[in-house]
């Protein structure tokens, strides 16, 4: 953790600002609110992950530890973001959790086929929503042993 200033724990991809705010508040309640980047469409999410456009000088070393991804977004949709991230060797180990209103079978099946790590249907009721967000955050951020650092070390070795 040399570059502490730039560390990103969670990338939140959500086009609805109010929903994003709710999610952020829920994460804050669980003390997971630090180092969160919020982008509001799929294209920007891809720019961030692959260090393009406004994120060109972000440096690929500090990928987020988890991505919270909405499905239904303008321009580039959540499923496309998922596909691109999971198709790239550099990024496919980043845990992705889909937060969606949709419990359509087709969305679920496609997401898992593309390699999503979790699929959470956002409940309308706020308490259950908060609980779902914090459970997911806690699981992927605290409980689960991430391979991200391991991969970072590896790629650094390769780059000399």
């Amino acid at each position: 953790m040399e570059n502490n200033n730039n560390t990103v724990d969670i990338l939140l991809v959500e086009d609805n600002p109010y929903e994003a705010r709710l999610t952020l508040m829920s994460l804050e309640e669980q003390n997971l609110g630090k180092n969160i980047v919020h982008v509001d469409d799929g294209a920007e999410a891809l720019d961030f992950i692959f260090c393009k456009g406004q994120y060109a000088d972000r440096g690929p070393d500090n990928n987020p530890k988890m991505i919270l991804l909405d499905l239904n977004m303008p321009k580039v949709g959540g499923l496309e973001v998922l596909r691109r991230i999971k198709a790239d060797d550099r990024t496919k180990s980043i845990p992705i959790v889909i937060l969606s209103s949709s419990k359509e079978d087709s969305d679920l099946v496609t997401s898992y086929m593309l390699g999503v790590n979790s699929y959470v249907v956002k409940p309308v009721e706020f308490d259950t929503f908060t609980k779902a967000i914090s459970d997911v955050g806690a699981y992927w951020m605290l409980l689960n042993e991430s391979s991200v650092l391991l991969l970072l070390a590896k790629s650094r070795l390769q780059n000399g």
Partner: peptide, 21 residues
């Protein structure tokens, strides 16, 4: 029905959530 599921529930969640806040 897809958009009903997605688009109608999101504002409800926001209403519910902010009231609770």
């Amino acid at each position: 029905s897809y958009s009903v599921a997605h688009d109608l529930r999101a504002p409800l969640r926001v209403i519910n959530g902010f009231s609770k806040m």
